[in-house]
């Protein structure tokens, strides 16, 4: 009966995952391997193709109420929602403007992704019964880790899918962007290439995401015990899931848990990049939601 309960939990979370996250790993890998049946993604590999790629995307405005107070940079983004002209100033060269527009569009997608992760978190049994302040803390500290994990299925060693799989942006192009933009994605590629060797499927990913959200060691939590209890149940469910989906992969559960340490370092480095951008990019602003998440994070 206990195993049946753990399987039911796994199914419940998987349904929430499918409901909230539009691009699954299965679909992303199909696109990347050319087996999706759809048209191949548009490839962005230089400034010219970036400009052409803009035509692929519906414009989406970035709210920027605090433009004059905080001038930061984009959060990392698992996709590109829209390239907008909202922040394209009249000064500077075309490449600079394009880069800014691109990273602002990353912000828009990040904000949407935070909303998706929040809805997923709310579907974890017991999560909404936690102290509301603790729910906020779990999201604040967990959400960038989740976004990084969710980028992995979109990536291979050569680049990443963006814009819900409609576009493939090459790693070399991302690397060629001006500092520190050009440095921001490399650590995520390095992590993702290693993470992808674990060959998790969407079911495995679902439970791993829930485990990350339910981390009882986030700074400032008021009531750790119920969080740890919830996490323990999800951990059991994950362990069972991995035994079923990867019977021959010994130590996969342990290997996966070790990734949580790497993730925290990547988030710390990411926050450092944001601080650098804050100094260098005077035309950038950070979405208020992303400001909330990044402020006093690490």
């Amino acid at each position: 009966p206990e195993a049946a309960d753990l399987r039911a939990l796994s199914r419940h979370l998987y349904e929430a995952y499918l409901k909230n996250f539009p691009l699954t790993k299965a679909k992303a890998r199909a696109i990347l391997s050319g087996k999706a049946g759809d048209k191949a993604p548009f490839v962005i590999h230089d400034m010219k193709s970036l400009m052409e790629g803009e035509q692929f995307i519906n414009c989406r405005q970035i709210p920027c109420q605090e433009h004059h107070q905080q001038q930061l940079a984009p959060a990392l983004a698992p996709g590109l929602a829209g390239l907008t002209e909202a922040h394209c100033g009249s000064d500077g060269n075309i490449s600079d403007e394009l880069e800014l527009r691109f990273f602002n569009s990353c912000q828009s997608r990040s904000v949407e992704a935070v909303r998706e992760v929040t809805e997923f978190a709310k579907s974890i049994p017991g999560f909404i019964d936690l102290d509301l302040n603790d729910q906020v803390t779990l999201l604040k500290y967990g959400v960038i880790e989740i976004l990084i994990i969710m980028m992995a299925p979109l990536m291979n060693k050569d680049g990443t899918l963006i814009s819900y799989g409609q576009i493939f942006m090459t790693r070399e192009f991302l690397k060629s962007l001006r500092k520190p933009f050009g440095q921001m994605m490399e650590p995520k590629f390095e992590f993702s290439v290693k993470f992808n060797t674990l060959e998790l499927d969407d079911n495995d990913m679902t439970l791993f995401l829930a485990v990350i959200i339910l981390s009882g060691d986030r700074p400032g939590l008021l009531n750790v015990k119920p969080i740890e209890r919830l996490q323990e149940t999800v951990l059991h469910s994950l362990e069972l899931q991995l035994k079923i989906s990867h019977p021959d992969s010994l130590q996969l559960f342990a290997k996966l848990l070790q990734k949580m340490t790497d993730l925290r370092q990547i988030v710390t480095d990411h926050v450092h990049f944001i601080q650098l951008l804050r100094k260098r990019e005077v035309d950038m602003c950070l979405h208020p939601l992303l400001q909330e998440i990044m402020k006093d994070l690490y």
């Binding site: 904000v111 935070v114 909303r115 929040t118 906020v136 979405h287 208020p288 939601l289 909330e292």
Partner: peptide, 20 residues
């Protein structure tokens, strides 16, 4: 609570992206 106003909103409502 003020420091994380939008996160609170997201947790308590089904805030649409447009609202953000």
């Amino acid at each position: 609570k003020e420091k994380h106003k939008i996160l609170h909103q997201l947790l308590q409502n089904n805030t649409s992206p447009g609202d953000l």
